[in-house]
């Protein structure tokens, strides 16, 4: 029950993009087409899940036992940077079609604050191992949901008559605001 609550809350209530404002750069940058939004979402979900697992292990097996919490930021960012490299090499070798789909999005993920945010939030919320993994998957799904919905709206928006100064980032942010408003309606659904 607790796990389901974490999962649902990560997707809908405390959505990474619309509630925590994490991963705004790809959310605005890669949301012009639904296809690329889906790929980006999958790539992020994938890396998030692995990051959740690895960062938990590092945090609970190395940093906390040896009283090295102050190295958290340095080690998390290095883990993420090397993980993304590893994942990229691995996918390129093992699954060319997947690499075709995710390839160009993987390097962008290193500087995606959503991944770092996940590692930090999971540590801050003091989740145990299983909770951290569920939180990682849920957050990834939440990110995918937000970016795909956004891409759907923006494809339609191309046909709309948007005031000149708001074209591009301006209207995208306003749309995101309205989406955040909609997602706010999910608050309180978990008791």
């Amino acid at each position: 029950m607790e796990l389901l609550a974490i999962f649902i809350s990560a997707i809908l209530i405390n959505n990474f993009v619309l509630h925590y404002f994490l991963g705004i750069c790809p959310f605005l940058g890669v949301s012009k087409k639904i296809d690329s939004a889906v790929s980006m979402g999958l790539a992020v979900t994938f890396v998030m899940t692995i990051t959740a697992i690895v960062s938990w292990i590092i945090n609970h097996w190395i940093l906390i036992p040896f009283n090295l919490e102050y190295l958290q930021i340095v080690s998390f960012i290095l883990i993420i940077a090397s993980l993304v490299q590893l994942v990229e090499m691995f996918i390129r070798k093992s699954s060319p079609p997947l690499y075709q789909a995710l390839g160009i999005y993987l390097p962008l993920i290193t500087t995606n604050c959503a991944i770092m945010g996940l590692a930090l939030l999971a540590a801050l919320k003091n989740y145990n191992f299983v909770e951290t993994v569920i939180f990682g998957v849920g957050s990834g799904v939440g990110f995918t949901l937000a970016i795909v919905l956004m891409a759907g709206i923006r494809e339609q928006l191309d046909l709309a008559d948007v005031p000149e100064p708001l074209k591009g980032a301006g209207i995208a942010l306003i749309v995101a605001g309205i989406m955040a408003l909609g997602f706010f309606g999910f608050s309180g659904m978990i008791k």
């Binding site: 009283n67 090295l68 919490e69 102050y70 190295l71 340095v74």
Partner: peptide
């Protein structure tokens, strides 16, 4: 260098 600096900061603030 960064490890040394940070452990100093870490110990000073802990």
């Amino acid at each position: 260098i960064s490890g040394g600096l940070l452990s100093t900061v870490g110990i000073l603030t802990r």
